[in-house]
Simulated scan of single mutants.
Amino acid sequence: MTRLLDPRSVRELATRLGLRPTKQRGQNFVVDANTVRRIVTTAGVTADDVVLEIGPGLGSLTLALLDAAAGVVAVEIDELLAGALPATVADRSPEHADALTVVTADALAVRTLPRTPTRVVANLPYNVSVPVLLHLLETFPDWRHGLVMVQAEVADRLAAGPGSRTYGVPSAKMAWWAETARVGSVPAAVFWPVPNVESGLVRITRRPPPETTADRAHVFAVIDAAFAQRRKMLRSALAGLAGSSAAASEALTAAGVDPTARGETLDVAAFARIAERLPVTPGPRART
């Protein structure tokens, strides 16, 4: 039977490894067994799933995933943690040791995996959560469902819809790939070290992108420009891409969008319509 990690065992593992968690890599480890059980249940992991986990750390979530899935592919950038994870699983869940595959790499650089994932479940490092998610959606098209734990503020942005105060670049770009929904909160107290922010759970369900003749890179360039200066009307925000405010207004009108509207009011389908009518050249990038 799998023995999940608790606060004492997490600290013992860290001490044995000589580990000092770093903010640079967003290393905050879950120390509460009930939390990882809840994540696995909410994620809907089944015995047929091969789960892709990013940033497994000391293995708190990994152990719970192995209890439910056919296999886990864990991508870990920290060589010390990646090297220790198989031994932790062999010690605490020996019957699942062969179901774990560890890839020592930066998740943003991974292009191939030893097994094809069907689901993504991860406690994502706060500082790279959005770029990692967008990379996984673009690079590994076979996974259809996911659940990620991210900083609460990021969870709100990922799940926001047009017109929301938190709607922005992450919201619009995620909507190209998938439906998202915030499905829970996680208190800071279940982590070690304890972060100074709460966390949120976001469910991801992949869907086809909008029907459009524009490619994704062009649509994303329009999104970046639209949100580079949130207070600007779209005719001004897109002037750099169109060549002038007048040209931007013409493209927006042709796309059925009010030139005086602002980016936060548009859904991804509207951005796609704009991209179809707007020649895209390098422009300002919004902060994700």
Rank of each mutant, 00 (worst) to 15 (best):
G146F: 03
A159C: 04
F140C: 03
R144C: 12
V154R: 01
G146L: 01
V154M: 02
E138Y: 08
G161S: 13
G168Q: 03
T139L: 04
E153A: 11
A152W: 15
G168R: 06
T166K: 07
M149F: 14
L134Q: 06
R144W: 10
A155H: 08
A160N: 02
A172H: 00
M149V: 01
G161A: 15
S171I: 07
S164C: 14
P141Y: 00
W143K: 03
R157A: 11
S164Y: 15
F140W: 04
T139I: 09
L133A: 00
L136N: 07
T166R: 11
R157D: 02
H145W: 14
K173D: 02
R144M: 03
S171R: 01
A160G: 11
S164R: 15
G163H: 15
T139R: 07
S171C: 14
S164I: 14
V154T: 04
G163L: 08
A159F: 03
K173E: 01
V169Q: 08
P170K: 04
A159D: 00
A159V: 09
A160P: 10
K173Q: 10
A159R: 05
V154K: 09
V150L: 11
G146R: 10
S171K: 09
P162R: 00
G163Q: 12
R157Q: 01
L133M: 01
P141E: 02
M174Y: 00
A160H: 01
P162D: 08
L147P: 02
W143P: 10
G161N: 12
V150W: 00
S164K: 13
H145N: 12
H145G: 02
A155P: 00
